Every structure is written in structure tokens, then in C-alpha cells.
Simulated assay, not measured.
Amino acid sequence: MQRRRFKHTKTFEERLAEEAMRFKEAAEKQPAGSHARELLLKRARQAETASHINRWLSSPEMQPPKALENLLSGQE
């Protein structure tokens, strides 16, 4: 079995941003408070979080998130 290759024309971050926008647009079409709307909004937040994590991991000066930094400094 041969693996199919796919060359992406957009960056990972751009694809995540587009996915988040698609989920938000789909959520707007659902009735307020519906389970489907909440799931779509959750997926949009997950895509945005993945984008932030990717940006953090790719940064040259990788720093831990402030919340984690505050937790670690409280333990010392």
C-alpha cells in the first residue's frame, strides 16, 4: 500500500484559522443554546488554542504560559 502525499499551499496556522472561522459561521446558523451550536463553538476554540500552541512552540524564545509560570513560582 502506498501512502498518498498532499502538498499544503497554506501554513498550518492559516488552516487552523480558516477552520475556526468555518466552525464559528456554522455555529451562528444554529439556534442559541443548542447542543450543535455549543459543539461547533467548542471546535472553534480548540482550533484557536491549537494555533496559539503552535505559535508558542515555534517561537524562537519559547516561554511557558503565564498561568503556568505563576503556578510554578508559587511552589518555590
Rank of each mutant, 00 (worst) to 15 (best):
G74C: 02
L72S: 14
G74I: 06
E18K: 15
M21Y: 07
R22N: 15
L41N: 12
R37E: 03
G74T: 14
K24G: 00
A17T: 06
E69T: 11
Q63V: 15
A67T: 12
A44N: 11
N54D: 07
L41G: 13
R37F: 09
A36Y: 07
L71C: 02
P65H: 07
E38N: 15
A44L: 05
E14A: 12
M1D: 03
M21L: 02
R4H: 08
A32H: 06
W56V: 01
S59G: 14
E14K: 05
E13P: 06
F6S: 13
K29F: 02
E19I: 07
R37Y: 14
H35G: 01
R22M: 00
E48I: 13
E13I: 05
R55K: 04
P64F: 03
G74D: 03
E48W: 02
K42G: 05
Q2H: 04
M62Y: 11
S59K: 05
L41D: 13
R3P: 14
A36F: 06
A27T: 12
Q63D: 10
E69A: 09
Q46E: 04
P65S: 08
S51K: 14
S59A: 11
K29G: 06
E76A: 07
P60T: 08
P65W: 14
I53T: 10
H8R: 08
L16C: 15
E69M: 15
T9I: 03
P31M: 13
E13N: 06
E61K: 09
R22S: 08
N54Q: 11
N54P: 05
E18S: 15
M1I: 10
A32Q: 09
S73D: 09
E19H: 13
A26F: 05
L40F: 09
S34K: 04
A47E: 11
G33H: 10
R22P: 08
K29V: 01
Q30F: 06
N54K: 00
S51P: 12
A47H: 15
L71P: 01
K42F: 11
E48V: 04
W56G: 05
P60A: 09
F23V: 12
P64M: 09
Q2W: 03
A26H: 02
F12S: 14
K29I: 00
E48G: 09
K10V: 03
A67N: 07
P64K: 04
S73F: 13
R55Q: 04
H8E: 01
L16P: 14
A67F: 13
H8N: 07
P60C: 00
A27W: 07
K66N: 11
N70E: 11
R3Q: 07
R37W: 11
K42V: 00
E18A: 01
F23K: 15
S59M: 03
T11G: 02
T11V: 02
A50S: 08
P65L: 04
S73M: 11
K10R: 04
R22G: 04
H35E: 10
F6W: 11
L16S: 15
H8K: 11
R45M: 00
L16Q: 15
Q30V: 12
A44I: 06
M1A: 12
F23N: 10
N70H: 05
A47V: 12
N54I: 05
N54E: 13
A20I: 04
A26N: 12
F23H: 02
K10G: 00
E14I: 02
P60Y: 02
W56S: 12
K24P: 11
L40C: 01
H8P: 05
P60E: 13
E38Q: 03
E69P: 08
S34N: 00
T11D: 06
M21E: 13
H8W: 01
Q30N: 10
